Simulated assay, not measured.
Amino acid sequence: MPGRLEGKNAIITGAAGGIGLETTILFAQEGANVLMSDISAPALATALAKIKQLLPDSKARVETVVCDVSKEAQVQNMIESLDSWGGLDIIFNNAGIMHARDDDATQTPEEIWDLTHNINVKGVWFGCKHAVLSLRRHSKTKGSIINTASVVALVGSATPQLAYTASKGAVLALTRELAIVHAREGFRFNSLCPAPLNTPLLQDWLGDDKPKRARREIHFPTGRFGEAIEQAQAVLFLASDEASFVNGHDMVVDGGMTKAYVTPEGPSLRAPVNNALKEAL
């Protein structure tokens, strides 16, 4: 039985870990040829070895390329390299940063603002621009472009990270406009809005600090952080022909976080979580 992306050619940026890596694995399982992009060659090599171990019998073509998405020439070369594959069908513009020095309006250094927007906004723009050019060059009648935004673009963040939040809001606006502009060409543009995920980086940061952990988990009606695979499943849907009438959509995958009104007390919250939160507050 053919996969949901059988014969499609895809690029995934930020593919060496997290959502990007999980999406690469899913795409390959569903028959797509995938060009994995990241800024770190060693991280890409490790990720590719993992994929080969997980999918030893896969017929999908999976290769890697080092690319700084804030540099247009590198993005252009990356996308044009798929001309030898028959052209691009799908791109997941997932690469992004949230810098440790990102803060509020008074404390965020200008260089951190510029760095964040160069990667998170210009990088997405470059990916979209050259994806459209590739789709046109190969006379494609349909294509799927998915851009990673964030729930903070919808509800804001209680922890100051102004450059990141603003950049993700820009990704939403950019995606919506491109969805309208290119709809008649058959090119779909959608955004993914993840909530905070259960990653090694997050777990190391939280450590054994129970009040700190509870302060974050309290925002989730599910009582837990999301997993990268849960975001990847959403990307797979948006990339597939099953989403043929989904265009300009902000797909929120957050376990209900943005729909919840959270207070220290609440009948749906377990007592241990409430007690820990009281300590945090």
Rank of each mutant, 00 (worst) to 15 (best):
T13G: 09
G31C: 08
V34A: 11
V34W: 05
D38F: 02
D38C: 02
A47K: 13
L48D: 09
P56S: 10
R61A: 11
E63M: 11
T64H: 05
V69D: 06
A73P: 05
S81V: 02
G86D: 00
L88I: 08
N93Q: 07
A100H: 10
T108F: 04
P109C: 09
P109N: 06
E110L: 11
E110T: 09
I112L: 05
I119G: 02
G123P: 04
K129Y: 03
L135P: 07
T148A: 12
V151F: 03
A158G: 12
Q161D: 00
Y164F: 01
A166H: 00
T175H: 11
V181Y: 14
E185F: 08
C193H: 13
L197G: 12
T199H: 09
P200F: 13
W205G: 07
R213S: 14
H219Y: 13
T222C: 10
G223N: 01
F225S: 00
F225Y: 13
G226T: 13
E227I: 06
L236M: 14
S240V: 08
G255M: 12
M257Y: 10
T258F: 02
Y261Q: 12
T263Y: 02
P264L: 08
S268F: 09
V273P: 02
N275V: 14
E279C: 04
A280H: 01
